[in-house]
Design a protein around this nucleic acid. Sequence first.
RNA 1: GCCGAAGUGGCGGAACUGGCAUACGCGUCGGUCUCAAAAACCGAUGGUCGCAAGGCCUUGUGGGUUCAAUUCCCACCUUCGGCACCA
Length: 827
Amino acid sequence: MGIEKLYPFDKIEPKWQEFWRQRRLFNVDTKDYRNKYYCLMMFPYPSAALHVGHGRNYIIGDAVARYKMMRGFNVLTPMGFDAFGLPAENAAIKGGLDPETSTLNNIRTMKSQFNRWGVEYDWEREVISCMPDYYKWTQWIFLKLYEKNLAYRKKAFVNWCPSCKTVLANEQVIDGLCERCSSEVTQKDLEQWFFKITHYAERLLSDIEKLTNWPERVKIMQRNWIGQSHGVEIDFKIDGMNEMLRCFTTRVDTIYGATFMAVAPEHPLVPMLIKGAKDEEAAMRKIQKMRDESKIARSDAKVEKEGIFTGRYVINPVNGNRIPIYVANYILMEYGTGAIMAVPAHDQRDFEFAKKYNLPIVVVIDDPANPLNAATMKEAYVSEGVMVNSGQFNGLLSTEAIDKIADYFEEKKYGVRATQYKLRDWLISRQRFWGAPIPIVYCPACGIVPVPEKDLPVLLPRNVEFKPTGESPLKFSKEFVNTKCPRCGANSKRETDTMDTFVDSSWYYLRYITPKLADKPFERTLVDKWLPVDQYIGGVEHAILHLLYSRFITKFLNDIGWVGFDEPFRNLFTQGMITKNGIKMSKSKSNTISPDDLIDKYGADTVRLYTLFIGPPEKDAEWSDRGVEGAYRFLGRVWRLVDKVKDLNCRAPSSSPQLTKDELALRRKTHQSIKKVTEDLDGGFHFNTAISAVMELVNQSYEVAALADEGRCGTAILKKAVESAVVLLAPFVPHIAEEMWQLLGNNGSIFTTSWPSYDSCIIVADMITIPVQINGKLRAKVEVPFDASEEDIKKTVLNDVDVQRWIKDSSVKKFIIVPKKLVNIVI
RNA sequence: GCCGAAGUGGCGGAACUGGCAUACGCGUCGGUCUCAAAAACCGAUGGUCGCAAGGCCUUGUGGGUUCAAUUCCCACCUUCGGCACCA
């Protein structure tokens, strides 16, 4: 079973790891920012052992860092741990250890795994988000936001996970289920802290354009999440009352077709509207029932539309029509104004509602191809068309009418143009123990008082029963809760909720530059030199949450003058996941592959090489144990080649001063390979094709080595080819590359030598083979000099026997020559 | 429903700006070495017809543009991802 040991990786790998650490190859002095390159991997949760799927992220990052190092950059690659949060807390509850101990244990395990992979970081900059010297500054960011009125407390219906016993941000609710535990999320009406991310909605959206080196799909996801729409806000006069009902619409062109109004059950005007209605009490009860229904259940389009007539009417400003106001379950209070003008003919939801409650349907946009009839319509007509029943706007295209009517509204003061976003403010309160305490004090006299900066950090208390009860565990720690008001000194209570961990991770990349600063979160002058991050690498699952929050915090810090840039990550790369048996590797699916066993068997370089060779790194890939063996065999093959070549005297071609055909070909291949690998790494992360290019070079070197054995070839070019292969492989398989580099007679680290360059003149061959097509089908190949004229090529082609056989007595209609590429003859 | 990505041998995948489809690796088959095995090395390997020379077909399906299409255009099918009563 066991594969034979092809080279002594178990001796080589620890040796070079030690060497890099002693030489401080990955330790950077950030004061020297010349030629800087900030290569950042998303810092992980300290979960238990890592599997090969996790490894992909770090291996890719390490390969990039090492490549950039060889290109002469001053590379900063720090690493840290996103150590607060539910996973750590839940794991701690299970393991019976307190979260801090279990978190620090996990961190230790993970670091030793990084070490064995040969994945190197500047550990002197390690950032651990659960340590007071870090979360002090997370709290500081809260205070700064509070100062600018961007952190606020309000009572709101919030997402509540009954299993995690905490509230969740909108972004943490997936299909109505908790992102972490998949329990059904319910609604709770609670006082909670929010960050006003909506204040930045427009900039977060428009600045996506600046992110030219982000994956398109991530940008699209962010755009959709922010969800901008342009429309008009219209105030409808409520008949018989001195009140206006404001609604938002993107389709003012349909205003003449509005036959009723619909408001959300939570709408503040509801009690007033319903007052004096026929069955006021019964109606109120029904509305209460709608409110109680979970937002998730209500926000499913398949749910039957329900409504109650309020007994009130509004006046449509464009035609004076009196239209009834309904309370309807499909109207969301969180979006727009919580009220809509309903146009059944041109909106499917309104259509369904109108059918159910027998409300009029008025067509105002007609389908020119297929005239509509309100009485027989089966569904709403939502496309564009020609305006009808719309007074002065009749005959216009509906697309043009949108602007015309909006102008008219603004002029008549019926309404104003407005922009709406789907993005909601970021709910950051969590009723859990393992997080950064929110630095707020409640004073009976002064009210909400922020903790002064000089009193930070607000320390998480020790020895707290941290099990989730639905209320923050911190409430039960008297020493923590009871405090003096920082303003007046009166006995006061601390806020006992902790912050969402996404707050911790929204600024950690700034801390790495000056990780030990005690009096500031970071040093602006240096941060401005090193950021934006040159390359950020991580999983696509963070496309919205972490990346959006980080962009928000960066923009905020930019606004208050703490950083000089407004986007944190210049280039983003999102790697695909590794699957086993077609599904994502995970402990719960028990389909994980441990890197430790593989490293024992084949060495870290093999695991690294296979991980990079498995396929395009941005795509998902299926793990194959056979593939690992293939990578191992290849390394063994290179190892033996180096062993063979290392002691050869670099004699020039013995017999003739001219290089042989094979030597020329190998030299050409060497330069082509350098070009290919360089372009693959510069143009994107095409590790798989870069590696296959080196494989080709190695294969061809073997052929020439066999000739050299027979004395039919010189060795200088062979040695150069092998040496190039070793250098090109170094970012991927650093340990064996260092060892082979040394065996070939070089001193020092391969990572301090410069990346090889290629000569474009050598890449082109003297003679080239040109395929000849006849009627578009490949029929022959001819050899011609590289710089042959079209005349010469034509002559050669027509003299070719195969070509003559195909042409026979047919006449040549067309003769197409693509220089240096191909010939096509049409007969 | 809307938005996006992707469909290429037995498998992972390659192919510049429209110019030799299947590089590289895995697997399989045959051979060398060996008492034998492993490792290594050499050779074959898209399908199909043919003794062979060679022919024909093939990049999800069907059309189109072109001397030439995996690549461009139109229609459709399938898979995956995101959003989804957002007015």
